[in-house]
């Protein structure tokens, strides 16, 4: 059988203080994605290799890794694409590594939370009064930004995230925009303050790679640019008409 070499960047905090590459040969199968190859290693070669996965259908966002320097979801990236190999597999860039291919997710979730990704309404409508009306066109306004699976690939594509670890980052802004453009939401004022802060959207210098690597076509770069425009308008408004600016 044909085989492919996977060069996996491993990190074992209990043994070594630095990561190191380890080579594994796996049989090549046309139907296999990178994740299948990793599972093969875990089951048949080396049970200590550590990584996250769950849904194996590109929707839970667990399995992001760097494959040949490019952040991808390994459950939807075929081995075949990288023939003849060797294929380099490393944990997502810029994140702190816990072990092998497992990176710290907490900082990312903290940033998401900073963007207040929940519906904020001025007046609470009781559930008994039925649904908020929202036309298909209104839905379309934000739908794209609601498709984010929190896979963090965009963070690993963004050098600004690497240079400024506090930068709120692409997905968090996309999620803020997901609610800002929702016809049911009145919270943009609250989100504005946070996103216009230091480490907010103006840290972004428009490298644009986040949108290229996003597996769900969320276009976080677009979300940020649109926010910059809105942000600038808001700022001018607050200068010209300070009495009208959002609290």
């Amino acid at each position: 059988m044909e085989s492919v070499t996977l060069q996996v960047l491993r990190y074992l905090p209990e043994e070594k203080s630095e990561p190191f590459y380890q080579d594994y040969d796996v049989p090549f199968q046309k139907k296999w994605v990178i994740l299948d190859a990793l599972n093969y290693i875990k089951d048949h070669v080396d049970g200590t290799l550590t990584y996250r996965w769950s849904c194996r259908m590109g929707v839970c966002g667990s399995c992001g890794m760097m494959v040949n320097d490019q952040p991808v979801l390994t459950c939807e990236t075929f081995l075949e694409t990288y023939l003849p190999g060797p294929i380099r597999i490393a944990p997502l860039s810029y994140f702190a590594v816990i072990r092998d291919l497992v990176v710290n997710t907490d900082d990312f979730l903290g940033k998401v939370k900073r963007a207040k990704p929940w519906l904020i309404t001025d007046e609470l409508k009781p559930v008994t009064e039925g649904e908020y009306r929202q036309t298909p066109d209104e839905l379309k306004e934000y739908k794209q930004y609601s498709m984010c699976i929190n896979c963090m690939l965009c963070y690993s594509a963004c050098p600004i995230v690497g240079l400024d670890p506090e930068f709120v980052g692409p997905a968090a802004v996309a999620l803020a925009q997901r609610y800002n453009y929702d016809s049911r939401d009145d919270g943009h004022g609250q989100r504005n303050k946070i996103l216009m802060d230091d480490d907010g959207i103006y840290s972004c210098t428009l490298v644009g790679e986040c949108s290229v690597v996003c597996p769900k076509a969320v276009d976080p770069a677009g979300a940020i640019q649109r926010y910059k425009v809105t942000g600038a308008v808001e700022w001018w408004k607050s200068v010209v008409m300070p009495w009208k600016s959002d609290k």
């Binding site: 990190y11 905090p13 209990e14 203080s17 630095e18 990561p19 860039s93 810029y94 702190a96 590594v97 816990i98 072990r99 710290n104 050098p159 690497g162 240079l163």
Partner: peptide, 12 residues
């Protein structure tokens, strides 16, 4: 466990 925090080289 100590976490490994990769550093960015100036030539990234």
């Amino acid at each position: 466990p100590k976490r490994y925090q990769p550093r960015m080289s100036i030539f990234w």
